[in-house]
Design a protein around this nucleic acid. Structure first.
Lengths: 204, 204, 204, 204
DNA sequence: AATGAATGAGCGTTCATTCAT
DNA sequence: AATGAATGAACGCTCATTCAT
């Protein structure tokens, strides 16, 4: 599977490429496997589906926790990049709410991600926590922009917004939350985040 | 191990009472242990912390799943009773929001409960699912009353409200969500649930 | 079940009677239970079917092995008595072959007996071995009588005959040996035990 | 643990060979351990005597039942091959009786084999049952040949002959059946199988 | 660098036996 | 004498991790 034949044709450094390929395949398989079964999924299953020996997995990721962390970092980074790509969107409100929806809609089947958003929120000091912070900061900027644009009330702050993001994302992770219900749930949250609240509250 | 003499509060005769006491202690320890570690927590740890032999746990609950289910049923039933006690509250809105807050505030450290609210939402056919349904129905009534009283907008329905309840409860389960943040998160949700929304949305 | 009411009416010694009754019921249930499942059957099942607490079983038989031994002793003794009742039969040959057949036909479902005939053959020094020896001796007498009567060749001796008895009995223990096959198997053995063998062998 | 250097007999390279060696050692140890203690013997004991970790046993045989089955298949196959090697023997009678004796003489200490000959006779649908059937068929052919050759009476059929084979084999399994007794027991059976029986019976 | 065999700690569960009533 | 709750050792089996090639 790891195409050992290449080595014969040219002696430059096919191994390095092979290793990188393996690492990536392992990571991507792990994302799916842990997404399905959470931490309960076995490392052997990752190895099997990635078509590598179990020892190869452990060569690339010294412990199961490290593999899980790498999966999370990848996922957080990807989400952060998506958030960052919206920093200069024409409509900051649409950008914020759109990203919120996207993240929540993306959750189904990705148990580990939900768990991670959730655990990493507490910060465990590892790379995942760092990546999680990166995502959090990006969401913070999207929020700020939306607030400045008047699309989100000005008196909410990142901690509670992020907590809501984690909460709704996590709640959506199990496949059995109906899509329509999920949207109606988000509608309520988004309504709570919309401005004019103050106006209404201040009014008689 | 069970040193029947040290039951300080009441000095009634052991034997049958001892067994009941053990059962209750096991249940309560299990609630805490599974609350911390989820299903991953070991039955042995439950036994150790309950100061009973492992076989005693299995005498009372034939399988680990049965123990977990008993924990959940107990918890769901307790919450349902609390909800039911609010059916005839003078202020249905306060009753609804109060119960919502109570359930979420009660969550910290009770991972299994969150998981259960969440999994049982899908219904696995066991006693826990039945108990979960009972809670859901009770929440449904509280919601209806609050809506009739004008404290909650009339266009939201139980599925999304319950999903929000599960989501925020679950998000609050880890101890590291600051209490103030949790309240601000709830404030947003409650705002989203408040009436006048339609009026505002329809207006220019 | 243990008729605890008797105690009230007369104070003499109903407990003794109760105990004896229990002991017998346990023994008889044990014979059936071990007969079905061998030593693998659990002592608890014996207690359950005998309608007594597990501790009662252990009061009467201090260990599981002792219970098993008691079962075997009872069974060996019963068989020995049956053999002895044939000592003065009019037709010693019919008596011998009849008893042989009876024992083998009685085997189905009595795994423990087969195992015991077999293990006890080696003599483990306990009561069961003693009872087994008693049976063996009784079979020996039946054999002698049959030989004197000319119904069994004179050159066979008890050890091999007993071994055959054990072997065929054991082979018949599982229910799945067809009755007809069992009889045809015995016919072969009985033929081998019939006299005139020597004559034939000595002839050219 | 597996100290690949100490394979005294042949110095071929380990790794794959090591695994095969382990597998074989486990199988052979299992044959002995189950031979002594039947299914009651523990897998751990097999591991201990085979000088491998318990997980190694389970790597080679996914369940205890699979290990037991492998032992039986091996044994049945070996016996079948021996039987087949006698198909074209010059003296079919000697072949049949010789194989019968061999099988019975081979039994001592191999309880599990006896149990298996016995249980598998009932057919449990697994590989062992298949292998058992193979052996049975081979014995059937040896019997036919012996009958055609006039060495075994023509009116006996495989079922009862096989039952006798199982019975005597099983009875010989415990080491405490004296060799001479065993032979005398077989002599009786063989006499019962010999021809001229009919003649004698029909004759005066 | 990659393999997969080997490992042992740990898990859920059972069962003969003991203890307290 | 009888009960049944409690016990812990043992079992079958799994899995993250290491070793030898």
């Amino acid at each position: 599977m790891s195409t050992p034949g290449d080595r014969g044709t040219d002696g430059r450094r096919p191994q390095r490429a092979d290793a990188r390929t393996n690492r990536e395949r392992i990571l991507s398989v792990a994302e799916e496997v842990f997404g399905r079964g959470g931490q309960l999924a076995s490392t052997e299953e990752v190895a099997r589906l990635a078509n590598v020996g179990i020892a190869t997995v452990f060569r690339h990721f010294p412990t199961k926790a490290a593999l899980l962390e790498a999966v999370l970092v990848q996922r957080f980074d990807r989400l952060r990049e998506q958030a960052e790509s919206l920093f200069h969107a024409a409509d900051p409100g649409a950008a914020f709410f759109g990203f919120f929806s996207h993240l929540v809609a993306d959750a189904p089947g990705k148990i580990a991600i939900g768990e991670a958003l959730y655990e990493a929120g507490g910060g465990n000091g590892g790379d995942a926590a760092r990546a999680s912070d990166g995502l959090r900061r990006a969401v913070g900027l999207l929020l700020q922009h939306a607030q400045r644009d008047g699309a989100v009330r000005g008196d909410v702050e990142l901690p509670e917004v992020y907590a809501l993001l984690v909460a709704t994302s996590r709640a959506s992770a199990p496949a059995h939350l109906d899509e329509e219900v999920r949207d109606r749930m988000l509608a309520i949250v988004f309504d709570g985040l919309a401005p004019l609240r103050n106006a209404r509250r201040q009014g008689p």
